[in-house]
Nucleic acid binder design. Structure first.
Length: 413
RNA sequence: GGAGGGGUACCCAAGCGGCCAACGGGGGCAGACUGUAAAUCUGCUGGCUUAUGCCUUCGUAGGUUCGAAUCCUACCCCCUCCA
């Protein structure tokens, strides 16, 4: 299976998206012969997705780029029930309105990555609530449930791990794989969808869907998973100082998004460029070869390209410009900013908190004590220090920094 | 329904009447070294009008005690075995 006939699988292979797949040859010839409709499911638990979902989003983008139709499946139905995996009581159930609002927010994100229209390869977004909520229990059990073997389900990793670790596993959760398998069948019926993709943790669920499709629909369905993305040092990707790296600009500024990518580890640069940007492979090969500190140029390109995809051209350029200035020690628009009335003073502590550079005054105090806070490049000596107009330069601006990477501005009000 | 085990900070996990804002590890943050990288070393990792002070936190609500995460009672939730 050295020669791939389809652009789709060839691109996926070259760019490192494939972890496991069912019947690669079958999918390859189907993708080479015509338009394939494929889907990936997403939760509707928040109004934005974070970088953890970016691989999946990019998979759908590659699908469309190579002449096929992406289906974004929103788990509105399953979200409605609530994810039972959280062990604390805080699994608040979302209302229909919240779920719909979340779906709307997520749709905005996808609009950056996919082309939604009525053409044969136009992306569509569907909600599994459309068919799950109306299910009737007995008919469902008879038509679908009989195809699932408990023996088999108990051997699935997701279940087995839970049982071994003596962690709770509710019947509801146990049913997820059935509902998910059913989604695939329903999407095949409605949209001719023949491929489900997802993260490697979804492999078992995807297989169930593939098998179910064969049994109840007599169709050959395909499954494909992407590798779990970790950083070169093995950490799960997607956490920063301020929490999750959100894709939505309502949740995370373009500047912070850009910074997230700028701080990629050396060893990840090539891999991330291939997966998360549209740059040609030859160009990427060159960039990842850059020796020593020059790899930083590649990181900047990575940051700008990923930001461009997710936030648009202009936002990417601005973020890059802001970063260039901020790290050169100059005031830059686009950083968090607060104003200071002329003649007034403000404790450094309060400024650090107000600019979102520390979560509390206690934390700000600790940072100062450790020498981590700088005002105009000078370490702040005392946690009782204040900022006054005297600290503003001729343009009426003072620069405040926490660590090397977090910058903020104070301007004359 | 019965018996036993358990619910501790972001996660894991000690503590089992005062020395507990709570050991240790992970994660995170800061400092040093660097290249806004990794690795390594060091420090920090509840909050407060800045304090040998106060407030909140050890499933929930009460109680005992000068004093409780630690003892008692009730309740909720989880796990295991039995029915």
């Amino acid at each position: 299976m050295t020669e791939l006939k389809s652009d789709f699988l060839r691109v996926l292979t070259e760019r490192g998206y494939i972890h496991q797949q069912t019947d690669a040859a079958g999918l390859d010839s189907q993708a080479a012969a015509g338009v394939v409709s494929a889907y990936i499911g997403f939760d509707a638990t928040a109004d934005s997705l974070h970088v953890g979902s970016l691989v999946q989003i990019m998979l759908l983008r590659r699908l469309q780029q190579t002449g096929h139709r992406p289906i974004v499946l929103m788990g509105g139905g399953t979200t409605k029930v609530g994810d039972p995996s959280g062990r604390d009581e805080s699994r608040q159930l979302l209302t229909d309105e919240q779920i719909n609002a979340n779906i709307a927010g997520i749709r905005e994100i996808f609009a950056h990555f996919l082309r939604f229209d009525d053409s044969p390869t136009g992306a569509i977004m569907v909600n599994n609530d459309d068919w799950l909520s109306g299910l009737m229990y007995i008919p469902f059990l008879r038509d679908i449930g009989r195809h699932f073997s408990i023996n088999r389900m108990l051997t699935m990793d997701s279940v087995k791990l839970r049982l071994e670790r003596e962690q709770p596993l509710s019947f509801l959760e146990f049913n997820y794989m059935i509902l998910q398998g059913y989604d695939f069948v329903e999407l095949n019926k409605r949209y001719g969808c023949t491929l489900q993709m997802g993260g490697s943790d979804q492999w078992g669920n995807i297989l169930q869907g593939v098998e179910l499709g064969r049994r109840v629909r007599g169709r050959d369905l395909f499954g494909l998973t992407s590798p779990l993305i970790t950083t070169g040092s093995g950490a799960k990707m997607g956490k920063t100082a301020s929490g999750a790296v959100w894709l939505s600009d309502r949740r995370l500024s373009a500047y912070d998004y850009w910074q997230f990518w700028r701080n990629t580890e050396d060893n990840d640069v090539g891999r991330f460029l291939r997966m998360f940007t549209d740059l040609p492979l030859a160009e990427i090969a060159r960039l990842e070869q850059l020796p020593g500190a020059e790899i930083n140029e590649a990181k900047k390109i990575l940051a700008t390209e990923t930001t461009r995809l997710c936030r648009g051209d202009e936002a990417a350029r601005e973020a890059a410009g802001t970063a260039a200035k901020a790290f050169a020690g100059a005031a830059a628009d686009g950083l968090p900013t607060m104003t200071l009335d002329s003649g007034a003073q403000i404790p450094v502590l309060e400024a650090v908190v107000a600019l979102g550079m520390a979560a509390s005054k206690s934390e700000a105090r600790r940072l100062i004590d450790q020498g981590g806070v700088k005002l105009n490049d000078q370490p702040v000596q005392s946690s009782t220090a204040t900022i006054s107009s005297a600290d503003l330069d001729e343009r009426g601006t003072a620069r405040l920094a926490v660590g090397k990477k977090r910058h903020g501005l104070i301007k004359r009000g």
